[in-house]
Simulated scan of single mutants.
Amino acid sequence: MKTNIVKTLKVILKFLRGAVLENISLKLIAAFITLTLFVIVAGESVQISKRVKIEYETSESMMIVNDVPFEFEMVLSGPKSLIGSVRNRDFYYKVDLKGANEGPTRIQINPRELGLDRGILVSSLIPSTLYPRLERILTKKVPIELKFIGQSKVGIKSIVLNPSEVEIAGPHSKVTAVTSVPTEMLDIGKIHKSQDMEISLSTLDPQIQWISLKSGKIKIHIEVFKIKY
Rank of each mutant, 00 (worst) to 15 (best):
T8H: 10
L9Q: 06
K10N: 11
K10T: 12
L16S: 04
A19N: 15
E22H: 07
I24P: 01
L26M: 10
F38C: 06
I40M: 12
Q47H: 05
I48Y: 03
S49C: 06
K50Q: 12
V52P: 10
Y56V: 07
Y56A: 01
V65E: 05
D67T: 12
D67P: 05
P69D: 02
M74S: 04
S81R: 09
R87D: 02
Y92W: 05
V95E: 03
V95A: 07
L97M: 11
E102S: 10
G103N: 08
P104H: 13
I120Y: 03
S124D: 14
T129I: 15
L130R: 02
E135W: 13
R136Y: 09
L138G: 01
K140N: 05
V142C: 12
P143L: 06
I149W: 10
G150N: 11
I168W: 01
A169M: 12
A169H: 03
G170M: 08
P171L: 06
K174Q: 14
T176Y: 12
V178R: 10
G189I: 03
G189E: 03
K190H: 11
H192N: 14
H192I: 06
Q195S: 13
D205H: 14
I208R: 07
W210I: 00
W210F: 15
I211L: 10
S212G: 02
K214I: 10
S215C: 04
I222E: 03
F225P: 07
